[in-house]
Design a protein around this nucleic acid. Sequence first.
DNA 1: GATTGACCGTTCTAAAATAGAACTGTATCA
DNA 2: TGATACAGTTCTATTTTAGAACGGTCAATC
Lengths: 170, 170
Amino acid sequence: MKWDALEDEPCSLARTVAVIGDRWSLLILRECFLRIRRFDVFQASLGITRHLLADRLKKLVRFGVLRRIPYQESPKRYEYILTQKGLDLYPIIMSIVHWGNIHMVDSRGRPMLHEHKNCGRMFDPVMVCSECGEPLTAKAVHVHPGPGARRSSPVHAKAQTPSRRTVRSG
Amino acid sequence: MKWDALEDEPCSLARTVAVIGDRWSLLILRECFLRIRRFDVFQASLGITRHLLADRLKKLVRFGVLRRIPYQESPKRYEYILTQKGLDLYPIIMSIVHWGNIHMVDSRGRPMLHEHKNCGRMFDPVMVCSECGEPLTAKAVHVHPGPGARRSSPVHAKAQTPSRRTVRSG
DNA sequence: GATTGACCGTTCTAAAATAGAACTGTATCA
DNA sequence: TGATACAGTTCTATTTTAGAACGGTCAATC
């Protein structure tokens, strides 16, 4: 399967994986959320080859996750900063970090801690239901084909998208 | 950089990426959460080559995300099912799906809808702070080095891990 | 008893992606 | 004049992946 094919799959996971489903993209995004913006700094902090870095930045820009903004003329220099679409990736990044915090730490403990400025406390991210606010577990979720499913199932046509409590994380 | 090197990085994101940071692992996990368990069924539904599928399943078992369980003797046949560690990946999967739902849908709408059995409603996942319950945004989060950081910073030693409201999703 | 098919992989080769290092080009600084 | 910063591109060797075929065990069928 080619990467391009993933984009066209009738599956939101596959489509997202087409954008961020490789290690370098995820690591680059980690740096973005840590306020890294410039080619050299990405390269130094990640140890990625320049070739791949150029390639991945281009891809993320093409998908609208990053924006390439000139910060000086002559020579032209660009910064890569997160768009709103990119900022919306925050829950993905945080849930990945959280899983690592729980399952991949050594005896020394967590490499990083997160403080919520709103309440001033160290926190973990918790995923809850937009409708009732309860924490989500896989077993408590039922999956229905939606309008964009491969074979449309009129039986389920009454199913509606959730109310607009959807939150953008940025 | 080798994949093995990622595991040893002082970063929970990198360590998690070492486990699930490739497209096939994520797609395999999607199938797992849809109750797929057998080699052939994975292969047929994903279109992955058998070689890679064998390889990825082995990796996920090695990392303790899947468990290989015999379901018949002669010939020995195994199923791959999620461990608790694997079930805990649910928030990652869901946040990936959610981002795709928001940013990668075509005019036909979402391929899938999710119903929360607890409240009976179609929902979106929302990531909130374990301490105050408010939705999280990248800008409202401050990062501190933790005890497992590369260079320990005694200045930040007072920082503590969050209280045990951490929720396992399964 | 031979054949077919299900199941779970392994082996093989060609194509694609990646690593690692060197190179390019503009501009600033000493 | 020479050294340094920045943002890439080019090159070759190695590694990974794709795609197809092959193998082996057992159950069910002819």
